[in-house]
Computed example of a mutant assay.
Amino acid sequence: MFSEQFNVRFYETDALAHVSNTVVAGWFESGREPIFKLFSPNLDLRNWPLILASYKIDFHLQIFYGKPVEVRTYVSRIGNSSFETYQEIWQQNQKVASGNTTLVRFDFSSNKAVPIEAEIKSQLQEHFYPQQESAK
């Protein structure tokens, strides 16, 4: 599991006095940065190796200003050229949101998906979601 902590900023709140639902997608993307570094250690945007294929977010509880959040990022599936992450946001010891993202290893010069290297698959495997591990 990868873990990132964020302070909720005032501008991330909305008229209902809780965090806007659009903010969560950004927190999840920031939480995936350690995974991005497995593919591109320097985060070289001129030679980027991944594309986002899909994402889904579920909101469990309201998220509030003034209390930090933790984004937990796991790998839930590894395929030939794609993989999925499962992420959770926690605030005050409660899971407030969760989501799934599918990312594809992509070669922009050929405009095609390409296989994920064995070494990177091995590194991704180290961060499998615990329920996935028991299903093996």
Rank of each mutant, 00 (worst) to 15 (best):
S3C: 13
S134L: 14
I35Q: 01
D14L: 07
H60W: 08
Q94G: 11
Y65K: 10
S54I: 03
L52T: 14
E126C: 12
N21V: 06
I78L: 05
H18G: 06
K37N: 07
Q125G: 08
Y11I: 11
I89F: 03
N100V: 15
S81A: 13
K56L: 04
Q5T: 12
G66W: 10
A17L: 07
N7G: 05
T101W: 01
V104K: 10
Q131P: 07
T73A: 04
K95C: 15
E88F: 02
V104S: 07
G31T: 03
K56V: 06
D58Q: 14
I120N: 01
V23N: 00
S122Y: 01
L45D: 04
E4N: 09
Q91S: 11
V75H: 00
S110Y: 07
V8H: 01
A135W: 03
D107N: 15
R72V: 11
L61Y: 11
I120F: 03
D58A: 12
I116H: 00
N47Y: 01
Q131N: 14
I51P: 12
V19T: 02
L16R: 06
F2G: 08
N111S: 13
P68N: 08
A118N: 15
A118I: 13
L43M: 13
G99M: 06
S76P: 05
L16I: 04
F108L: 14
R77M: 09
S110A: 09
F108C: 09
E119S: 15
F2W: 14
K37C: 10
I89N: 03
I120Y: 04
N93G: 12
P41R: 11
K56I: 08
S3F: 05
N21C: 02
R105W: 02
I120W: 01
Q132E: 06
N93D: 10
F28R: 06
P41V: 09
T13N: 00
G66L: 11
N42D: 14
W48D: 09
I116A: 00
M1A: 07
N21T: 09
P41I: 09
N100H: 14
E12K: 05
F108V: 11
V96L: 02
R9A: 01
L43Y: 07
S122V: 06
Y55C: 06
R105Y: 04
Q5S: 14
A17R: 09
G26I: 12
L45Q: 13
K136Y: 03
F106P: 10
N7K: 08
L50R: 07
I63E: 00
E133L: 14
Q62P: 04
A25P: 06
M1S: 05
Q87E: 11
S30N: 06
G26T: 15
E117K: 11
A135N: 12
N42A: 14
Q5K: 15
P41A: 05
